[in-house]
Design a protein around this nucleic acid. Sequence first.
DNA 1: CGACGCTTTGAGCCTGGTCAATACGTGTGG
DNA 2: CCACACGTATTGACCAGGCTCAAAGCGTCG
Lengths: 267, 267
Amino acid sequence: MTTLSHHTFSDRTVSLRSAVSARPASGFEQSLAQASLRRIEEKELLFAEGDEITHVYRIETGAIALFRVLADGRRQVMGFAYPGDMIGLGMEEEHEMNAQAVKPTRLRCLPVSSVHQTAAKDPMLGFKLYQALARELAATRDLMLTTGHRSAIERVAGFLLAFSRRNERNGKDPSTIELPMTRTDIGDFLGLTIETVSRTFSKFKAMAVIELPQSNEVKVIDLEALETLAAGDSDPVGRRTTPGNERTPQRDPHHVCAQARSANQGG
Amino acid sequence: MTTLSHHTFSDRTVSLRSAVSARPASGFEQSLAQASLRRIEEKELLFAEGDEITHVYRIETGAIALFRVLADGRRQVMGFAYPGDMIGLGMEEEHEMNAQAVKPTRLRCLPVSSVHQTAAKDPMLGFKLYQALARELAATRDLMLTTGHRSAIERVAGFLLAFSRRNERNGKDPSTIELPMTRTDIGDFLGLTIETVSRTFSKFKAMAVIELPQSNEVKVIDLEALETLAAGDSDPVGRRTTPGNERTPQRDPHHVCAQARSANQGG
DNA sequence: CGACGCTTTGAGCCTGGTCAATACGTGTGG
DNA sequence: CCACACGTATTGACCAGGCTCAAAGCGTCG
């Protein structure tokens, strides 16, 4: 399991948990603890594309969908944020995305000015922010790979798997998934229509891979099958694009720069 | 033209030019000037997924494709780097992507250790790296929007437009595009097959929007038409996903945190 | 109970992928 | 100099997955 070989949704894909929040010792965490608490209702927008960035937020309870809207009205959900995740880490003046609660949500608000002040005092914070962003970049790339080339079955299976693993990680039942978001949100996240999402759920149900006690509750019956579906092993056809011998990795390790040799291989 | 409303390929999408390189005054630039020069041949890999990160590179001439390979053998090209662009800015231990020359390429190599040393001395560098990464994140998100929901025509038109604008920006003829990469590279970048890319080129040719003197040279005849095609205005059908009144932006500006008001609106 | 929103299911179509054959361009060898 | 081979690009025929349009369940809230 190397870091980069997952072809289902990585944890990172769904979670925007930042490296910053993983450092309890920082003054950043202290600031968060005393930050003001805010509650927003279902479907309420926390901020919109183009809004001035005023705060960094951490989810306490609930769930937030981060999305952008295209000219034709389509939405692309870039990710969901769950309790513990942070949003609004962008460096720009304005938000690049919309943030909308998919259910009633409580969050802590931290003014960006305070973050900047801390950054000015503590050089390490910039570094940590950089790390956090690097993670988000990786997550976005993963999502892109997913929405780019995978079938509806693979996408939905991977989506469910990510939830199962999230539950497992949080000590909850990995086979009982509560979907906080609507089919529309899921579809816009996976790059599918609500009909296709719904049909795929039904297909999984017919295959006895899952059960759907309610439309927003999924019971995973056959986890292994779900993983197989997500991996796309069902497709026995060899893929053509770049068959492998074409464009063979012919990198020459001896071609490294002189500086490289002394700095990294000389040890 | 706000920063975020472009729905063709933004400059950022194709360019990985970093904020760092835009700062000529920094010691970083000095380091680059004295960095070793390296030449790699067409199709040669500069580095591969999983390789230890040893250097940061800046393209002098040529072009590099950055891509990842999925389990089934498909490639997803995450971007192309052209002269002036920097690659290898990731924070991780290992490279997340493969970097392959699409034509003979010269580049400057800078050991990461040197970057880290500079970062330790200069707190601003971390901040700049953060900015550079934020740009790349934005570019990746743009690309995701493109590959997610747009038709082949829109993708290819947007792709050509990006080249046209790049030329314009560099003082070259915006209507004469030289494509350094193969159809395979383009297809893997846009999430299309080579056949579809080729067919779309032919379609544009038949529409008298472009000419194809050679397979790797595009003459833009009707720039306006190309922009229209890229924008997807050709589709008169109203889109359904999230029709607009559904999920209306009902953000309440009065709900901002107490701290927000004092920090940002009190001025 | 009715209205509304969300989900599910069905039927048909269309875009783009697959398979396959042909054309083009370049480099190599006779 | 031409013949041939190889890699890339183009074009065609066909197929299928997912989108569109449409209608019917289902839950919830007034």
